[in-house]
Design a protein around this nucleic acid. Structure first.
Lengths: 241, 241
DNA sequence: TAACAACAAATTGCATGCAATGTCAAACAG
DNA sequence: CTGTTTGACATTGCATGCAATTTGTTGTTA
């Protein structure tokens, strides 16, 4: 049995990212406590954590407000991820990836090949691709063996739509066009592994930085078509309203 | 009157950074609460915040432990700052700094000139330089106008010795040699402003990345001479013990 | 003598009571 | 009819009590 704090934290984060609360809305302790079946103490702890994650902002009068995100802020967070992952990729390349890391990375590539070679992609395939994609990015971050860098990336990834696969559901909804982008992303993965294997640090960094352009594309696409599948777009100001 | 939480948080952070607790030591709530004259509630909140800042780590059995830092981790955090400040400098250069930003930056440069032109540096001069240095770095971070980037830098700066002026007290203690490094840093500031003014993004990025080498130098210097003035070196494993 | 088990003390995590502060609304004055 | 003031209500922040888990110690047995 997980502690109340963990349970509340996970639930609250999900609720916020699913757009259950309006941006700018004030979060009161008692209603949330009743809704989640806990007392106010773990709720307060969770609010504090979510503030540091950047999902809540402290109200000047005390208490917390749901943070509102602009499209600009999301694009900026994606750019920061690109810059940090670029550093990670460069470090891996310069140190030379261990044979184990290389094996794991190539496992990811094989998995991507397998999925993209299918004629059509169902939901399971998408889920597998997302799992593989997250694993791939995580391998590079951990492979850089820089705790501060891993921490910075992890904290940045908690922002809405900043994490590697966060914008992929939108892509999947767009059918053939989205699949073409998936192929493109996969080719970049191939090049990136090649660069790291050959210790081409600058090339690896450049590829990783360029790689996030796909996420920015997905964002722009989602903005142009409000009917696309977008989990938490209520948090984004000027999105649909 | 500030809230108990704020007061406790600031005091605890100071105590930890001053090396009042041994790394790996378990922090019990009740003794701390008595020591700081507050109840356990704000203490728990403060522990949670300090965990997210990276100064405490959760114990598997519950409660918190003072985090131990290796010299490698500190060097890594400084490298991350260099990479992030490099991005900020590049963004400022590419967008072109506003005339106001440029004015403020050049004010910093003038202040640096004024201090370094003195024959000898007393404590006040050092304090002024540190204040100016922090202001200079902050101007660039804010000038990049990327909230996620500013956040990432701010979070990284909370790690011990990662912030811009965090390693300067060590430098000051080293007399003439330290002053020479200060001149070197100042010349880099001059070049950086010039690069940003002329919209030379790549040059600005490179200069900002190189700039943190001075901080790494200071760290190495401090390790070689344990008698240097080092506020929180107890947190660093293998430092003196 | 060493190892294991059982008990006691302490510590954490959670719930709740209370006081202080802030917020909203209604009523009154201009 | 509008602006202001006052009062009631709600909410936060803090303190503390309680139960559950962990830790340290002591006694017993092999």
């Amino acid at each position: 049995m997980a502690s109340q704090l963990i349970r509340v934290l996970v639930q609250l984060r999900d609720l916020i990212l699913k757009g259950e609360f309006a941006p700018g809305e004030r979060l009161a302790e008692i209603p949330i406590a009743q809704k989640l079946g806990a007392s106010r103490t773990p709720i307060r702890l969770a609010f504090s954590s979510l503030e540091q994650e950047g999902l809540l902002e402290p109200s000047p009068t005390g208490g917390y407000l749901i943070k509102r995100f602009t499209p600009r802020e999301i694009a900026d967070a994606i750019a920061v991820r690109g810059h940090l992952e670029g550093m990670a990729a460069r470090l891996v390349a310069e140190h030379g990836p261990t044979s184990q890391l290389l094996t794991f990375l190539k496992d990811c590539l094989k998995e991507g090949d397998r999925i993209l070679n299918k004629r059509t992609l169902n939901y399971d395939d998408s889920a597998c691709y997302i799992e593989m994609n997250d694993r791939f990015h995580q391998l590079i971050v951990n492979g850089a063996e820089n705790a501060a860098l891993a921490r910075a990336i992890e904290l940045n990834n908690r922002l809405p739509y900043a994490a590697p696969s966060a914008t992929m559901p939108m892509q999947q909804a767009s059918g053939e066009e989205g699949r073409e982008w998936l192929r493109h992303a996969h080719r970049q993965h191939l090049s990136l592994v090649q660069a790291m294997e050959h210790r081409e640090g600058t090339r690896a960094q450049g590829l990783a930085e360029e790689h996030v352009q796909i996420a920015r594309m997905n964002m722009r696409y989602a903005f142009e078509r409000p009917d696309a599948f977008m989990p938490a777009f209520k948090l984004v100001a000027d999105a649909v309203n």
